[in-house]
């Protein structure tokens, strides 16, 4: 962690508005990016990110510098995303909303379908997939964010690959 960042966090923790504002502005983009990949829809991603920002304000005081700030932050966003996931009505149809990616609505739809399927595998799979394949985290880093073992991350990814493979095998071209 750069000393500049650490300094800023400490100041924000002491109540420095300026420092906190800078902190949020700096990290908004990456939080949003993760949320978007997770939920697949712009509006939902904005909601999640906003919730994450509010939560950041409330709980920054609890950050103890024991882990990297980004790890901590991602954990926070993942939790917000999970809250959103749980609050969402379960039977919400996938293809009712506006496209996410302007240039290729197909791939956006595909992503949402894939994510829905991964979501159906159980808790923890979506986050793992997004962190590792979307954000390019190593398994260890993803494990740190999700507070699970590295082997669990590897296992989840393996499972995702296996199941997606199997579901596509019978020739249903997506």
């Amino acid at each position: 962690m750069s000393s500049e960042l650490e300094d800023r966090i400490r100041r924000a923790q002491r109540g420095d508005r300026e420092a906190f504002s800078r902190l949020v502005e700096d990290h908004y983009a990456s939080m949003y990016r993760f949320a978007l990949k997770y939920c697949g829809q712009r509006a939902d991603a904005e909601d999640i990110t906003q919730q994450a920002c509010i939560k950041l304000a409330r709980s920054l005081g609890q950050f103890r510098f024991q882990a990297a700030f980004t790890t901590w932050l991602y954990r926070l966003v993942v939790n917000c995303a999970l809250d959103w996931q749980r609050a969402r009505r379960p039977a919400e149809p996938i293809d009712s909303a506006e496209p996410v990616y302007e240039e290729s609505p197909d791939s956006a739809l595909l992503l949402r379908q894939v994510m829905a399927r991964v979501q159906a595998m159980g808790e923890g799979y979506c986050e793992t997939l997004v962190l590792v394949l979307g954000e390019g985290f190593s398994h260890a880093e993803a494990a740190a964010v999700l507070e699970v073992k590295e082997s669990t991350v590897s296992w989840r990814l393996h499972e995702i690959r296996k199941r997606l493979q199997r579901e596509h095998q019978p020739g249903v071209e997506v």
């Binding site: 924000a12 508005r17 906190f20 504002s21 949020v24 502005e25 908004y28 904005e46 990110t49 906003q50 920002c53 509010i54 939560k55 950041l56 304000a57 409330r58 920054l60």
Partner: peptide, 10 residues
């Protein structure tokens, strides 16, 4: 909007 909400919470 998000930043404002965060600042308000802060």
């Amino acid at each position: 909007r998000a930043v404002a909400a965060a600042m308000a919470a802060f």
